[in-house]
Simulated scan of single mutants.
Amino acid sequence: MFDPQILVVDPNLVRRRKVIEACAEATTAPALFATTLDDAYQLAEVHRPSRIAITAEFTRTGEFQALLDLIHYIGADVIVYGTDEECADRTVHQINDPRGMHSLVSALTSGLGLSRAPQKQARQMEAPSQVQVRPAMQGILLIGASTGGVTALETIVGQLPHDCPPVLIVQHMRPGFGDGLIRRLDSIGKPRVRAASDRVLLENGTVHVAAGNGRHLGVVQRGGLMTQLLDDANVSGHCPSVDVLFEHGARLAGKVPVAAALLTGMGADGAEGMCRLREAGAYTIAQDRDSSVVWGMPRVAAEMGGVDDVLPIDRIADALLHGPARCRKSTYQVR
């Protein structure tokens, strides 16, 4: 499996290529590149590189601090190059001479080896507390997320038992990044995590993820509950859209217990759908402000009255599994 350890963030093609090629000559550690901070954030969330080099021009933008927060969270080393200005964050390693390729490559590759990966993995696996083992409700769990969602999803999926109710997830993500997210979630959690496919019967212990696939994810009842992929236009500005998933869940909430969580993200996708879910009798949760990277989608849902509980990310998995009694019971048994 491709396991990049170096990420270079630079919009300049010639400069970026020189850094990547110099790193390839100095080490066998795989490297990725990004041309924008948005791409860098998504790549860092999914692949967890050990070293990240960022050109100085990006440090003057508002998005840099959000990326820096993620870098600190995943435990990566960050190097800013091509500036004579002093960076306020003392954890940042600076290479002030833009022509100092040797210094930059040395900082990126020195001592970098595959032996670091198990240590990083162990630290990530220890972070979420394990959910207390109790009988999980029979039904479906729906989750929507956007900016910052990869880390939030890792926390939730890492706490789910192997026989959890079927989980359907929509994560806003650029095309091409979804497969890495799915592999990541599958490697850290007990349930099976797979890319959402059309007309697949839902089973306990399985997580279906729609991320960057350009098709909406829904769920329908055709004898049993099964996934449905739709080729419709953007809804709430996105495809796949959280609102589409939640609307489908609302249609089933009177027949099947449904619990849903709206996680960190910019905008309002999922807010209207969450209102419909709550009106239909589902149990609805919004991630709280403190644990969100961007408190947009969950905030709008709460303001619209679509939320039963606002919870920190480390409490959401337990709440989804063992929600309040008002989440309707059903004689339907998930296969």
Rank of each mutant, 00 (worst) to 15 (best):
F2T: 03
Q5M: 15
Q5V: 05
V9A: 01
D10Q: 09
D10Y: 09
R17D: 07
V19W: 06
V19G: 01
I20W: 04
A22H: 05
A24N: 10
A34G: 01
L37R: 00
D39E: 11
L43S: 01
L43P: 01
H47V: 01
R48S: 00
I54M: 02
A56S: 05
F58P: 00
Q65T: 04
L68Y: 05
H72C: 03
Y81F: 15
T83H: 06
D84L: 07
E85G: 04
A88E: 12
R90I: 07
N96S: 11
S110R: 10
S110Q: 13
G113N: 09
P118F: 06
K120Q: 02
R123P: 03
A127I: 08
V131P: 10
V133A: 15
R134P: 07
Q138C: 12
I140G: 05
I140W: 03
L141E: 09
T151A: 11
L153D: 06
I156S: 02
P161W: 09
H162G: 08
C164N: 08
V167I: 11
G178W: 00
D186C: 07
G189D: 12
V193W: 07
S197K: 13
S197A: 12
D198Q: 03
D198M: 08
V209N: 11
G212H: 09
G212M: 14
G214D: 03
G214R: 04
L225P: 04
D231E: 04
D232P: 03
S236L: 00
G237D: 01
H238A: 06
S241E: 00
V242P: 04
D243Y: 02
D243T: 06
D243V: 02
H248Q: 04
L252Y: 13
V258K: 13
V258Y: 12
A260G: 13
M266E: 02
M266H: 07
E272H: 07
E272P: 01
M274G: 10
L277E: 13
R278W: 08
E279T: 14
G281W: 07
T284P: 14
I285K: 05
A286D: 10
S291V: 13
S292A: 04
S292N: 00
V294D: 05
M297S: 07
P298Q: 09
A301H: 09
L320F: 13
H322Q: 15
G323F: 15
A325Y: 09
C327F: 12
S330D: 09
S330G: 12
T331P: 01
T331S: 11
Y332P: 06
Q333L: 15
